[in-house]
Amino acid sequence: MTPELDTLPVWVSLPVTLLLLLGSAIVLIGALGLVKLPHFFQRIHGPAITITLGTGAILVASMIYFSALQSRLVIHEVLITAFIMLTAPVVAMLIMRTAVYRDLRARERGKTPPAVKDGEASEVYPFSTKKSLSAKK
């Protein structure tokens, strides 16, 4: 461990510790959700908390830590935060639109896509194929 770590006061290292533990727990929960949830449209909610709260907690912890370590304001982690907050909804929308489009295309060809084979998926995926396809064309 680096020697400068001993100079940190308690009121800095306590919130950094708590934020790091919160962030790591949330990252783990998000990855578990990505693996365990049964359907794609449920699975996309797992990484969402990783991206928002987990990344946010670790970034704020990094900001406090480096500000205390260098005894000046080090806030260029705000750049990453702003970028993530801008791009995370765009990426989520693109992936969801891709999933909907590919499921519709697979149904149009007459075979069920592999993600909706398990029975309970019909209420997760509520709209009927022919109506939405003809409305689109």
Partner: peptide, 8 residues
């Protein structure tokens, strides 16, 4: 199972 899962 699907390609969008892999992208996610």
């Amino acid at each position: 199972p699907t390609a969008q899962d892999r992208v996610l």
